[in-house]
Every structure is written in C-alpha cells, then in structure tokens.
Design a protein around this nucleic acid. Structure first.
Length: 442
RNA sequence: UCCUCAGUAGCUCAAUGGCAGAGCAUCCGGCUGUUAACCGGAGGGUUGUAGGUUCGAGUCCUACCUGAGGAGCCA
C-alpha cells in the first residue's frame, strides 16, 4: 500500500477530497452486483466504503468481497462528501490490507440483527464494539471527566478511599468478604467514612472509585460493583451540599450536551428532556413528599398507601420524580430509616439532615447525602443503637474528638447517572463489564 | 429471600397432544447506489436437565438448572 496519512473516522471530514488511511474493522458488508459497500469502524465512528468492480484493481475488489464481519483491516482511499452517507462522507476504497481475517467457519457471533439480553451479556466483550455500546461508553467517560473537572475547578482535592476495609459503614449484610492474610476484610461499600477524615485534613475533598454491595437485588438499577463519586466538605451544611449537588448535575448534563450530542443521537436519547436540566432543582421535605404520595394513592396513581415513617420505595420515587421535569431533592427523612452517622435536624430531632436526589423519568435515586453528626457523645450512642462494633469505629470517633466541625457530603452513583443521561433501560449497559447478582463473566 | 414470565438451529422466533419450521448468520449463485439491502439455492436439531401421564409430548404434570422482569434493600 502507498502511504496516505493515517486518520480516524471522526476526523475524516477534514480530509475531503484527499486520500487517507484508516485502521479498523469491517462492521458490515453489503453488495449490489459489481458494487461493494463495506462499512468500516475504527473506534471513533463508522463510515461506508464504496468499490466499483471496473474502477479498482481486481485483487482489491476480491479481497473486500471475501471479507468477513469484524475482520481487522487497514484501508486506503479517497474521502468524498456524499449526501447519501449517514455521516456525510464515504470512502472510495483504493487499497486494503487484511490484518486478520475472521474465519467463516467460526463467524463473528453478533450479527446486525436483534439479540437477546442473555446472549449479549455472554458476549459483552464483543458487544462493546457495537455503535450504541461505544457511544454509551463515550458518554460515560464524558460524565466522569465532567464530574472530576467540576470538583477540581472548585478547589476540591481528590483523596481516594480504600477498597479493602476492616468493617462495614452501613451494616455487614451486604458486604463481600475477602481473606486479608489472617484477618477478615471486606470490599468497601462506600468511601464516605474515610473522606470525612480527609475533609478534616484538606477542607474540600472527593473520592472517586468502585464500591461493592452484595445485595441480592435483581432490578434495572442495581449492580454489585459500581462507581461512586463522593464529595465531602468541612463546615458545609445540608443546604450547602444540596447547592453542590444541583450544581454538579446541571454541569455534567451541560457538558454531555455540548460534547457528546452525536453519541446521544446514536443512543436515541431525547435530548430535549436533558436541555431542561438547569438549577435550581425543586426541593421538598420528606413530609411534603409523603403528602404527595398519599394524594397520588387517593387518585389511584399508586397501588399502596404510603405511611409516614417508612423509606421511599421504588414506585414511590418514580411517582415523585414524574411530577417534575428536573431532578427533585427530597430532604429530612425520618432518622430511623437512615444511616447512623446523619446529623439530626435541630428543629426536629426525629428527622435527619439528609437528602436524596431523584432523577427524572423513573431513574430513581442518583445521589444520597447528608450533614454528618459532629457530636462525639451522640455518635457513640448511635453506633451502639445500631449494634455496630465500636472498636472498628474508634478512628472515626477520633474525628469528633479533635476539632470536630459540622460537615456534609454526598455520593453520586455513576452508573445511574449514565443510565439517566443516556436514557437506558438498564444500568448493565453503562459500564464495560457489569457485575450483577448472576453475572461474573466475562 | 419472595412473586411473575421464559428456555426449540450459531442468533431472533413459530409449531391445536399427531411428519421439527421461518427469517437472519454461514456457504454457492444473481443484481452498478446498497442503508439491519434484496432475489434464488444449500448445509445446519439430544426442543435446558431428570422423571412422570399418554397409543403418541416441543406442547400436559412434578422437581431441578439457567435467564429475564419486579418487590424488598440501595447509588
């Protein structure tokens, strides 16, 4: 092959009328008599090639004609703007080098036709190559970058929490145990307790990493391994972190609309719904939410009547979220349904200074946060009430002995945020290799 | 853990208790603008597993396995 400049499909518009080299894979091949229409992908996008039998060398035509799906190829050809092409450009193929040809006796299993969930999940390592899955992963990467930029630009310091932990932060029933030499350790279910310590050192901090929950949940919103970003701010109140949460979400959505609109189109997302996501978000108390739920039940929109004092269930969250066109913040839940470390509301000690942010369109809770308890005595009392091993929390209690201050933070689940922003049916598509109740492979 | 549904060709699905079928994929042939191309042909089956009912079971019954959707729990 001659040496034309190597480029990518996403950049190919800059080379209109020129010869270029693309390195990628055959996505599909159509033919019509003496014409071939190979579709190539290279990780940045998809482009259709064209070969006419009387216009190219016979060996090039035959080589393309015999290609199998997902064979890896280096192609050279002239870029041509064409209204018939979905991406606006086509490639008049002049030469091709087959890097590895997929055998027809063992063809690529994922055809352009429909497949079932189980089959696709068994072939997740190959499913990632589809346009839709590639676009989702690009949006995921954009969301993570937008999250980190948001905090970095505001003076937060990234202080990651350990993955291996000696004890639970919210009870032991949902932990994955691992052998740690002669001790029992667990995979973390939240980095929160540790970033409280680093917030006391550095003021404004966040952690970003994987978390693990051995919940036997089998729903479209659950993974056993998922990624969380958790900011923690010294001297911040509940109101402060509600401001922070709505700023984060609106900033992330805006970045995706600016930089990943083409991918959102591939995924089929209705971006008009995302364009409405601007601060301020509605804020309602738990008490107001209960009233809305009871009205919903009276109107027949909800099956069961919600009683004050319980935690919100999935159908309840979906109902509340449907009342708004942007995320809704529900704050001040009853303390007894929330974690032990939450500060009581001074105006009503039965309520906790906490907030759940419910995404629109039924995507459920994407953020959970609170003001943390700052009193040593009260925290000891709560740890005992919850039957937690006091010895394991000695270091955490130290934070309340040496310059304790009010502080607040929250956790945002990356996969739920990706599912919502992309408009996906299930969080399993939001991460390259999802870990679920019945899925550890591939 | 509980509730509901499903499992038939590589994939997606049909088949009243009575001969196991189609589309896609693969292979062969045709077509100079195809858009999940189309047209013709070929090969491809231990109907999830183990029992049971029946003259006869993909179909009915029991148990188990696997998967999906939901509840609870949660981000």
């Amino acid at each position: 092959m001659t040496q034309s400049p190597v480029t990518t499909i996403s950049e190919i518009g800059k080379h209109d009328g020129q010869s270029v080299t693309l390195r990628g894979w055959l996505y599909n091949l159509r033919e019509s008599g003496k014409l071939l229409f190979p579709i190539f992908r290279d990780g940045s996008g998809v482009i259709q090639g064209v070969l006419a039998k009387n216009a190219v060398a016979a060996e090039v035509f035959d080589a393309v004609k015999s290609l199998t799906q997902e064979s890896s190829v280096i192609v050279e050809g002239k870029v041509r703007a064409d209204k018939r092409a979905p991406g606006g450009f086509e490639l008049d193929v002049a030469a091709i080098e087959i890097v590895q040809r997929v055998s027809e006796s063992d063809p690529y299993p994922i055809s352009p036709k429909e497949h079932g969930v189980e089959f696709l999940m068994e072939h997740r390592h190959l499913w990632l190559r589809s346009s839709r899955q590639s676009s989702i992963l690009r949006v995921r990467a954009e969301i993570i970058k937008a999250v980190r930029d948001f905090f970095d630009d505001r003076g937060f310091v990234l202080t990651d929490s350990p993955i291996l932990t000696p004890a639970a932060c919210e009870g032991t029933s949902t932990l994955f145990p691992v052998d740690y030499f002669d001790e029992q350790a667990y995979l973390t279910q939240s980095g929160q307790l540790y970033i409280e310590a680093s917030a006391m050192a550095l003021g404004k901090v966040y952690s970003f990493g994987p978390t693990f929950r051995a919940e036997k949940s089998k729903t479209r919103r659950h993974l056993t391994e998922f990624w969380m970003v958790e900011p923690e701010v010294a001297y911040a109140t509940l109101d402060d972190i509600m401001d922070l949460a709505e700023g984060l979400i609106s900033s992330v959505v805006k970045k995706c609309l600016e930089r990943r609109r083409a991918d959102l189109d591939v995924i089929g997302r209705d971006v008009s719904k995302l364009e409405k996501i601007e601060a301020p978000f509605p804020r309602i108390t738990y008490d107001a939410a209960v009233q809305m739920l009871q009205e919903g039940h009276a109107q027949g929109a909800l099956e069961s009547k919600f009683e004050w004092g319980g935690d919100l269930g999935s159908p309840d969250e979906t109902y509340l979220a449907q009342k708004f066109d942007r995320p809704v913040m529900v704050h001040r839940y009853p303390a007894k349904v929330k974690a032990f470390y939450m500060e009581p509301d001074p105006k009503n000690p039965a309520a906790a200074l906490c907030v759940d942010v419910l995404a629109p369109e039924g995507y459920g809770e994407i953020i959970g946060g609170s003001q943390r308890m700052s009193s040593y005595e009260l925290l000891v009392q709560r740890i005992r009430e919850h039957g937690l091993p006091e010895e394991a929390f000695k270091w955490y209690l130290d934070l309340r002995k040496y310059g304790s201050v009010p502080h607040s933070g929250f956790g945002m689940g990356i996969e739920r945020a990706v599912a919502w922003i992309c408009g996906l049916e299930h969080v399993r598509e939001t991460i390259p290799f999802p870990r679920m109740l019945n899925r550890l492979y591939p």
